[in-house]
Simulated assay, not measured.
Amino acid sequence: MIQKIFSYLIPIKIFTKKSARSKMIEVTWANGELVLDSENTNYSYGSLQRILRYGLKNIGYKTIQKMNHILVLGVAGGSVIKTLVNEIEYKGKITGVEIDTDIIQVANEYFNLCQIKQLEIIIDDAFEFVLKTKNQYDLIIIDIFEDTKMPNFLFESFFSERVCTILKNQGFVLFNTMILDEAHNLRNRKYVSEINPELYTVKMLPRVEHHNELIVIEKVA
């Protein structure tokens, strides 16, 4: 495909759509691969896929392969789901929660997300879903952005405690955060300081792809 070849020289935008949640969704050929972007940041594939792949490697591919049920809060184009299925060869169930119906339409059309048999997509607010779900999960991936902003509820102790209660013993949370200023840095430190060290171990993987910091939580009791 000629667009793919030329994309090594210059990004080639092939689709744009206004979205109520993300303002603008763009599908672009960049460096030989299709990526999904919002107005100001990468939403799926490209750098975001590298960031979350790095976090999954830190947990361990063999550990993930043995899991039964993974929850993804914030699906976008589904790059982390593709990593789980195609690279890690994870065979268990994946539940993806995404608030933006426009993004899921794009993910199905351009990234074939609907062809992944073990994936169930639920259109819902992540906060509401976490309160309602009766399931427990081996891995919870939190990757929720509205363009470059992260909703405040993600860092509130009520939400983080609820996330941890729906996590199985020896389960993991992989939380992708963005740090653009010192206030964000302090926010992350406060978030980590509020996690009970008797029940959970916490690792911070700073400055992944410049502005992202991954927080990895393991439930040990």
Rank of each mutant, 00 (worst) to 15 (best):
F127T: 07
L186A: 00
D138S: 10
K117A: 11
L199R: 13
Y110M: 01
Q115P: 00
K190G: 00
V163L: 09
S160R: 11
N108L: 01
D147I: 04
R207M: 12
E182S: 02
V97W: 06
Q115T: 14
I195N: 01
T177R: 01
P197D: 15
K134E: 09
S193H: 10
P197K: 15
N135C: 08
E213S: 10
A107C: 10
D124W: 10
L205E: 11
N185V: 00
I179G: 00
E146T: 13
Q170F: 14
I94W: 01
T201M: 08
Y137I: 09
I217Q: 03
D147P: 02
E98D: 13
I122T: 12
V106H: 07
N169S: 05
T177N: 04
K91R: 15
N188Q: 12
F159N: 02
I140W: 10
K91P: 07
V216T: 14
N176F: 07
C114H: 15
E89C: 11
Q136I: 03
K91V: 12
L174D: 02
E128R: 14
E146V: 14
I142E: 05
P197M: 14
R189I: 00
F111Q: 07
E98A: 06
N112I: 05
I104A: 12
Q136L: 01
V163G: 01
E128G: 04
K132T: 12
V192N: 06
I195Q: 02
T101S: 15
K203G: 05
I122P: 06
E87M: 09
E89R: 14
K190N: 10
I140R: 09
S193E: 14
I215Q: 04
I141H: 11
F159M: 03
G92E: 06
E161F: 09
I94T: 01
T165L: 02
L205V: 15
K134T: 07
K93A: 07
N112R: 14
H210Y: 15
T165K: 11
E182I: 04
L174N: 04
G96S: 04
C114G: 12
K149G: 01
G92K: 09
V202M: 03
E161H: 13
V208S: 05
E198P: 00
